[in-house]
């Protein structure tokens, strides 16, 4: 009987043990992205935050501070529009839009594909603008060197307590729109205190992307020129 293959008969039932981590595939691709970026000497910054918190504005202000714009590139993540890419384009840097369609976050696979499309030779700093969302991006690392979460004064003071994961996974929390603090009746220090409650190790920086206040501190914390 040697050499015979025994296969299950009709109607038989078998359990297959898999024990596979679903998010592992994303983590592996994120590590691949990181290796690719390191080989090219590119420092990547994942910018996360709610819709309207000021992610695009922060990237625009940081580009303006950069002394060599030809060394900056931006990936803009959004569900369906190219609004952010059009804004970034005006600054004369390389930019690529990633439209996720239905997905609420960027994942390492989409970013990896975009990295292969973007001409990254000579680029020093790559901003990856995540989809406006405080939940999903926390679970999908992209391979970036630094993760920034932008929270704005107009969101009120509870955002960090409601969404602790995104702050825990970030290196820097930017509290934006501080120029509106008085009008909104929100104390930026209270927001900072709430960030520290959920993520004591995160650097907290207060900014106004409208007036430019604090933006230089963000550039310094990110180690970009």
């Amino acid at each position: 009987m040697s050499g015979e293959v025994v296969s299950p008969g009709e109607g038989e039932v078998f359990d297959i043990e898999l024990e596979e981590e679903l998010l592992e595939a994303n983590r592996r691709l994120a590590e691949e992205n990181r290796r690719m970026l390191d080989d090219l000497g590119v420092k990547a910054i994942d910018v996360m935050g709610s819709i309207g918190s000021g992610k695009t504005s922060l990237i625009e202000r940081l580009i303006e501070l950069h002394d060599r714009r030809e060394r900056v590139a931006v990936l803009c993540g959004d569900l369906t529009t190219t609004i952010d890419m059009e804004r970034i384009k005006r600054h004369g840097v390389k930019v690529l839009q990633i439209n996720t369609g239905k997905e609420c976050h960027l994942d390492a696979n989409l970013v990896g594909k975009a990295l292969r499309r973007l001409e990254l030779k000579g680029v020093e700093t790559l901003f990856i603008e995540n989809v406006g969302n405080l939940i999903c991006p926390a679970e999908f690392p992209l391979g970036a060197h630094k993760r920034v979460v932008v929270v704005s004064i107009t969101e009120g003071e509870y955002t960090p307590l409601k969404h602790p994961y995104i702050f825990m996974d970030a290196d820097i929390a930017v509290i934006n729109k501080i120029d509106l603090a008085q009008a909104m009746g929100i104390n930026p220090d209270k927001v900072a205190e709430n960030v520290r409650k959920v993520a004591p190790d995160v650097d907290v920086i207060k900014t106004s992307c409208k007036t430019g206040e604090g933006v230089r501190d963000v550039a310094e914390a990110l180690g970009i020129r």
Partner: peptide, 8 residues
Amino acid sequence: ISRVTLEF
């Protein structure tokens, strides 16, 4: 995904 039960 820990286990899948398949019917043949």
